[in-house]
Amino acid sequence: MADVQVPKQQKCIAILWPSFLVAIVATGLFFSAFDPDDLYPFGEPTEISRMGVYSIGFLSFWLVSAVSGIGTLYFAMTNCMRNLPEPRDQ
């Protein structure tokens, strides 16, 4: 399978799309347990509206799971894919 090369666009979708779905679930679970108004990040009460906290929460969950997705994609590369020679300039 050394010659399997997934196009960049497909990689982006593979990272952004599942992490988007996971972020929706995570946001729902997290904020049904915690009221943004009860949260004191870094010891300070927030002055952001609940809608803002939900949104930032969602985007953060998305970011975190997307980063994990990048890691998955990176480590899913097999060694034989890594061992291929660098392309020569033609």
Partner: peptide, 25 residues
């Protein structure tokens, strides 16, 4: 973000495209 081109397989632009077509037309 990792750059797949730096460490991953690169088999030349042409065959790259062919494989891409067979997987994701």
């Amino acid at each position: 973000m990792s750059n797949p081109d730096a460490t991953g397989p690169v088999t030349g632009a042409q065959s790259d495209e062919q494989v891409a077509q067979s997987l994701y037309a």
